[in-house]
Write a protein that binds this DNA or RNA. Sequence first.
DNA 1: TCCACTTAAGCAACGCTGTTGCCAAAGTGC
DNA 2: GCACTTTGGCAACAGCGTTGCTTAAGTGGA
Lengths: 382, 382
Amino acid sequence: MSSNDLPSLGAGSPGANLPALRGHNTALVLGLLRAAGGEGVSRLELAAHTGLTPQAVSKITARLRSEGLAAEAGRRASTGGKPATVLRLVPGARHAVGLHLDRDELTAVLADLTGRAVAERRAPLAFEAGAEQVLTTVEREVAALLAAADGPGVLGVGVACPGPLDHTTGVLHRVTGAPRWDGFPLRDAVAARLGLPAVLDKDTNAAALGLDRARPDGTGSFGYLHLGTGLGAGLVLDGTLYRGPRTGAGEFGHQIVQLDGPRCDCGRQGCIEALCLAAVAGGDLPGAARALGVGAANLVELLDIDQVLLGGRTVLAYPEPFLGGVARELAAQARTRGGGSGARPAVSVALAPGGARAVADGAAELVLAPLFGARRPALRPR
Amino acid sequence: MSSNDLPSLGAGSPGANLPALRGHNTALVLGLLRAAGGEGVSRLELAAHTGLTPQAVSKITARLRSEGLAAEAGRRASTGGKPATVLRLVPGARHAVGLHLDRDELTAVLADLTGRAVAERRAPLAFEAGAEQVLTTVEREVAALLAAADGPGVLGVGVACPGPLDHTTGVLHRVTGAPRWDGFPLRDAVAARLGLPAVLDKDTNAAALGLDRARPDGTGSFGYLHLGTGLGAGLVLDGTLYRGPRTGAGEFGHQIVQLDGPRCDCGRQGCIEALCLAAVAGGDLPGAARALGVGAANLVELLDIDQVLLGGRTVLAYPEPFLGGVARELAAQARTRGGGSGARPAVSVALAPGGARAVADGAAELVLAPLFGARRPALRPR
DNA sequence: TCCACTTAAGCAACGCTGTTGCCAAAGTGC
DNA sequence: GCACTTTGGCAACAGCGTTGCTTAAGTGGA
């Protein structure tokens, strides 16, 4: 048995056959059921939002009900005829494990199908102590997590840690201060150790994926900026997490915003990360926020971003100065974009919900997302 | 009849049925035929690259041949059995018109299915003279273009002009120096005038789409930087043109790379465009190239870009200084990314092929691309 | 109280997709 | 000249969403 059996639709074989068609539509319906949340959706509403015929939706939902993934949940009020039956996702039908491996701490969550964490554990971690110790800790914590919950059907494990790494192969490229991790196949090691399929991704990507699920409307683009010991970003473009060809996208910290600026650890000058962290160290929070804000404005401008979300320890320690400073830069940018009919309000900035658990939640979402279709369509509340 | 009948797969109705399945696979095969070029591909190779069975490929290619889009073209040398029959795209089976409406000039091309221009026309244009004059010129030039060629089956017209505009509605947002164009529905106006389906997009997006077709391997990401009277970019991410939710992506010129730098026309300070154009005006080409290069490096870093292509009048006027300056910045960036196994060579920079006709060629590609599937899979040369 | 109407959802037959099993065609090489 | 390999078509098939029709379950006016 291969150690990585998670569904990977379409990536390798772009040709589509009947099973692929069925899988696509099933995932689509599941995604709408999930987006509907506790309120549920009727079959006809699903038909309207997918473009499928009501009969097709009936067949698909019948399969989902027989598999225990969906259930009927009462009826709507009549609108002049037979009242619609409401369908709902069964959150506990499957679960996924999300692991956040930070430099000094491990966070593990068990998430249900809605992405909600039904159990959580934290443990200190010494990443530079090497693979064996880390894997032992992971095994122990995940075992405890699964024992606590009655969770049937664990689909797999999502692992998130600081980059750089390769999402497609599941291999770490470089870990600051721990050269022996170079090239370590973390995904397969975790999968073998736990006996579960695994996915590996950068912490910022996982967080962005998790935040995308929590957003009110599904499509659109947003950027998640994570300021902790370093500065990185997760990009969701047109409703899809963008990783880049080598999982290298989102390297936001070394964007240069000041030609001939102060030298950065990376060797270049004027990187946002250097400006930000130096300002924070010097107690100049407005200055740090301004540098972050200029970077955010560049991001918004370049990628036509809808919203900016901030997270990471440093931001969480001083939320107001950062939110205010970034908002100020985005407002300044918006003022310059007026002119014709294209004038629009400043892009909003907010604190990423989920706080310190955002990355672990997102790691679970790495496993869950494929079930619900890559691109989640918007379900407008009628 | 609506004035815009171009195929728009999947955007509105994400649900897939049998016609959608068929269309998807047909486009996939057509895309591979196109990528194979004059050499052609055998049915079994198509099967291997799509993941479809050879029999399915036979059925699909039989349809394509009966529609005149594909043809048999000789045989391969035998490898120990029956020699494979080579299939080839029939370039002249369909055509598309590409229009580049620049501020002072119109370029029109008639492209065959491979994207090659089989006819071309140029005419002076006064964009600020208003819609009626522009449409009249367009009608005259397109008529002349179609009369010269014996091109049957014109699929539609792709229109490219400077932004900002909305690709989905085909409406111009703002034209510098010509406020009466604000909100003008250019796409529908062109479609009605010519009696052909039309698509509208930004000049940089069209150019990037056209350049994507011309690239050796289909997937991956690249950025096209266009420096003319302004500075803009076209982004192809994971083999797909990224437009952003409001066709606003690629606004590269007002990326800030120098905090508190010289004031830009847009009102902010330190924009790349301001730095670049001021340097060019002052005869400081290395300085202009350096500003452009820093912006390119930021782009590469943020989006994990494979290649940078340069175009536009100003670059075409002084190719060497710009290529050299940008290459220098990308090399400086690559040096700082060493460390572990993730070390990789500097991202390459090159002049965009096609020169002054790149945008018009890309405009035709706006029409052609949907036929060949959005995401073109790589066809490795065995 | 009844009946016409509306809306929701299932049953059965159907068309069309890619798949499977089999066979003919057309080469190579001993 | 024969065994073998490789290519590609023919025919029957399974399974997808669709269509046409029927049943279920309400509302609302006469």
